[in-house]
Design a protein around this nucleic acid. Structure first.
Lengths: 111, 111
DNA sequence: ATACAATATTAGAATTATCTAACAAAAAAC
DNA sequence: GTTTTTTGTTAGATAATTCTAATATTGTAT
């Protein structure tokens, strides 16, 4: 049995149990990140707002494909858009996602 | 165009470009995490080693289903196993994954 | 208005993921 | 040895994902 009923105050880090709702929400968001093209888009974006055509250039696949991946991340509330003239700029919606990307860099890119 | 050719020393955080290999590796790992049951298993594990039957109890699905999800994470080098008698204990392989899980907790569970 | 540029959407084929149910393997207990 | 416990594997049906190609939409410019 897992003993998570009450905090173990002095012996080791206490890991809080996580609700199934939180789990489901996190898994949905993670799934939206876990595709090579989408991850690359996020790395290119960082904390900037970049137009679709510039993303297409930087990533290197078809405009339609990029547009679909952007839509997935916008639907999952990872990205937001801002229109300027006839261009649409995408940017990462919240600080949490940026932190996550930062940690993933450290975990996966330091070898 | 994205200007990542050289570090912008004083104006804002410089975001390093990421190789496609790193991207692919990260995406594969992330995909292994981005399923509700697998995420729940990881949250239950934390930094402990837990037997399959205890994981089955804690998660609440069939033993076969758990075994398949554990195999996926073992194949992707997220989990490792240790046999004791006729029980098999699973645990998170490296510190990086634990950090990632910690940050995900903060990002997705603080609401 | 037409033409052009940038972005979004749809359809459909191919691939991949996921589950259940049944069965196999390994180690312990008897 | 057999039986039981624990874990792993396979088969196959169903569902979800991903890509390409074609088309639609939206705003700008002329």
């Amino acid at each position: 049995m897992i003993t998570v009923d009450k905090p173990a105050l002095e012996d080791g880090p206490y890991i809080l149990p996580v609700s199934d709702d939180d789990i489901d929400r996190a898994a949905r968001s993670l799934k939206a990140l876990s595709h090579p093209l989408r991850l690359k888009i996020l790395c290119i974006l960082g904390d900037q707002a970049i137009s679709v055509q510039d993303i297409v250039e930087a990533v290197g696949t078809s405009q339609s494909n990029i547009s679909q991946h952007l839509a997935i991340m916008r639907d999952k509330e990872i990205l937001m858009t801002e229109r300027k003239a006839n261009k649409v700029f995408y940017y990462v919606r919240d600080e949490g996602t940026l932190r996550l990307i930062g940690v993933m860099r450290e975990v996966f890119c330091t070898k």
